[in-house]
Amino acid sequence: MSTAATPMTTGKTLGYKTHAIGSFQFGRDEYFAHIHYPGGRHIMQVDAFLRALMRDVAWGFFYGTVNFDTVFGTVNHYGTVEMFIGLFNEGYRANNRHFVETFEAKDLKAVFEGMLEDWTNEGFDPFAAPDETGTVYGAKKGNNSKAIKRQRLIANRMVGLPGDLTFRTEPLNRQFQDVPTDKPEVHAEKGFENEVHAFNFFDYVCRSDVTWNPSVVSCVKDSQFCATTEEHVLPITHGNDRVEWFIQATDEIIWDVDDRATGRPRAKVTMKAGDVAAMPADIRHRGYSPKRSLLIVWENNDASLPQQYASGKLTPYPVAF
């Protein structure tokens, strides 16, 4: 029986709108987000849903799969996006209970942005660590447009170069008060001011007021250093469509690594300051950062890679030895 045929009334008396695109309908009540689709319904805690939705919107659906939980998520095809129920869940797939619908990325983004705006209450910041934000539960109360309209920062060459991303002016995060803020000495001869360049990378990153939101800091062609501060738990489980690498710059993150297609556990990776690890192209991962930590996510932005990995032309593992 399809429950999606019945118009949703969830949350209307609480002041929230329902949102729909294609065969999907979304509603929220005081505690939960409800997702209705042909063949069934799904439910998530609304704070977890909004934290995941925030990343999906801000990242433009990111590289590959954004799993909101073990059932619901999106797959980026860079122009179009699949929204799915159970596509990467062994039980749903084995019993043919999964559902997938494809949308133009701009159309889905518009619906997601509207939902985020409507369902985010005053005082709740879905980008912040739990200790830094208020509650989202209860009836609709105001909004927090400023918090949810932050965009992913992307340097073209390197942060701080003329015409490129500027330095952050936010204060050091409360968990990075002991990170040195000293500046490098830069002695550029006349005419070379745009090339002789250095800056305090740690200081720049530790002023980020968001968590789990990599921003591009330096580029070598398609090689991108994406720096981010992490605290508590990654609100999504990221399914790779290419190899990416992690460089743990400070503190510690523990990663759960599961098979991308089935969700079966494959490894736990504990990374401490100075550790470097690859995330293969056939896994999904979720990180846990007990203290706010500084992580460099190293990406290859070559647009041909998803197809090359999907076709088997490239092995999912970056190094053979």
Partner: peptide, 16 residues
Amino acid sequence: SMGWVKVRRGHMALLP
């Protein structure tokens, strides 16, 4: 000569 930089832990420099 283009100049020089002195960098310490946490500093990033461009090698243009």
